[in-house]
Design a protein around this nucleic acid. Structure first.
Lengths: 321, 321
DNA sequence: CACGGCTCTCGACAAAAGTCAAACAGACTC
DNA sequence: GAGTCTGTTTGACTTTTGTCGAGAGCCGTG
């Protein structure tokens, strides 16, 4: 397959069509090919990120609510997806917004840490393609062996593919059976190096998980529902990158956390931009915990959740002032 | 006119169409308006920069020639527009390319210095709209009083308008009749401040002018053809932001330069990214002078000019190594 | 309160873009 | 050297989008 001429043609077609504003038939005659081919090239150009079509996410930050939340929660930026409005599925809207925001935050040369979960995978799945140079996407936590559809490595690789970036996977299980084994594995040079380089990321993308029987970590088998119940009694408030956090956003002192291979929360906090995306209303408490723990600087939520957060933070803020 | 709801609708339409990928009729039914209105909103969204369509300029840097030039001339980046190829007017192609490159180089929060001339105005004119926040566009040199079509303030304002940025004009003439008056004016706090803040720019956009009777500065009446002839004999090699430079790219020691109100070359050199765009083949010597003087880090030229530059620099580079 | 002048909106038509099956061209295998 | 497989190109067709003039709503003004 002659890859070069094809690539060139795609670039030229995209250039003439999008930058010069020619029509497809004009491009076709310039390039001496059929218009149908031009249409195909243009589709490829869009799919591979040679052309970038992005909408301003301004609309969602212009919102007064977003500004109030930024102040109340001391966050760098908040985006709020309108809910029960004109879009069929509100949670899709949040993911679409999150994908746009994410793409807006990524810069050339960045190193990006990606966690996992349904939310992250949904974002990856609808994210448009881009052609960022020198971007590296790293996995923030260990893997699940099971054939589970939102596996950490899948999330990482899919996002890397979309950005035309390098994806670095984490070849270790998320959770091990004994603390000793986990300690040993963390000490392995390969793993050690990867874990210690996480704080060098410029941007992190994650969501937060609940700590009930429906929790992601339970459904994927990392914990049983009973174990989760016990952890909950012990103060578990949420899940970040596979780790259990308490209401203060600190790693819970428990056997499970000691058996997990994942980025340390302190490393995560060193990442400049921490983009947290929450789709479900049920994640209110976990989200509060994550924010309290400083695990989030940029936030994408739905309107209902935003109002709840403000109701929660508002009184506290008033008290403080 | 209710400006708010209209703006909101444009945003929503753009969002549903470009981010969610709905069809226009679907957007129309969601928003409960006619499809024709949706089409109109989308056009407005594109025209105001609410949506951004940008093509990768990769194609033009991938060129071997561009790489060779970068090395030979010690430039940060070079883009080469293919000439006598498939596009009708090669100089338009250079301007289109320059506009894309320019938009790619601009970041949020940047301060941009803009000079003037036909090239700069052409670029401004075909540049697509963008919605950058907190961008400031400043004029690099004084103004022409005459109703001339590529006036410095017009260049600045047009680019500011396209970027949805703040434009800061320079309310002083480009050239005065006496050196004394120029000194006095430069000492004025308003002017002084503006001149001294130029080195804080993150990006500069300019071209270079010739020093013959056809020169821009002659045509707009800043200099007579005779004066220009004399300056040429005295070593003038090009014009940058209204100032005459010699073959070394230094400001020529002459009365004219002392009567000009413009950014000092040393300030220009402090700007991190100096994007120089040259359309005409006749500007070879002036361009060499500008590059020699370190007034250019990013360059956009046509293929013919690129080859001439390489022929010129190539032997010298070989001699050096 | 009727009158231009203004913009916004809509329906209908024309133009442009997307899609598909079939033909085709290379590369590789046997 | 024929056969197969994969990926590209094309013409014909369908769907989607752009545009234009007519009409509707909305102000300030006389």
């Amino acid at each position: 397959m002659a890859i070069r001429p094809a690539e060139q043609l795609i670039h030229k077609a995209a250039w003439l069509y999008y930058a010069h504003g020619l029509r497809q038939d004009q491009v076709a005659s310039q390039l001496k090919i059929s218009r149908a081919s031009v249409a195909m090239y243009l589709r490829k150009a869009r799919e591979t990120g040679i052309v970038n079509i992005s909408t301003s996410t301004q609309l969602f930050t212009d919102d007064v609510l977003a500004r109030q939340l930024e102040d109340a929660l001391k966050l760098d930026a908040v985006w709020i997806a309108p809910e029960n409005d004109y879009v069929a599925d509100p949670s899709t809207d949040i993911a679409v917004l999150a994908a746009s925001v994410f793409l807006e935050l990524v810069k050339k040369g960045d190193r990006i840490g990606v966690a996992w979960g349904r939310t992250v995978y949904t974002i990856a799945d609808i994210m448009s393609y881009a052609d960022l140079q020198d971007v590296t996407v790293v996995q923030l936590c260990g893997n699940l062996g099971a054939p589970y559809s939102y596996r950490p490595d899948q999330c990482t690789m899919e996002i890397a593919r979309r950005l035309n970036a390098k994806g670095i996977n984490f070849y270790a299980p998320l959770v091990l059976t004994t603390e000793e084994l986990a300690r040993g594995l963390r000490a392995e040079p390969v793993i050690r190096e990867q874990l210690s380089s996480i704080h060098e990321c410029d941007l992190a993308l994650y969501s937060v998980g609940t700590v009930d029987a429906d929790s992601h970590v339970v459904k994927c088998g990392a914990l049983t529902a009973e174990e989760m119940g016990a952890l909950r009694k012990a103060g578990a408030a949420g899940v970040i990158a596979g780790q259990i956090i308490d209401a203060e956003g600190k790693a819970l002192d428990c056997s499970y956390n000691r058996r997990v291979i994942s980025a340390e929360l302190s490393s995560l906090r060193k990442i400049e931009k921490r983009l947290m995306v929450v789709q479900e209303d049920s994640k209110f408490e976990p989200l509060i915990a994550a924010i309290t723990g400083g695990l989030c600087t940029h936030l994408v939520v739905g309107a209902r959740m935003a109002r709840r957060l403000l109701d929660h933070a508002g009184p506290a803020a008033e008290k403080a002032s």
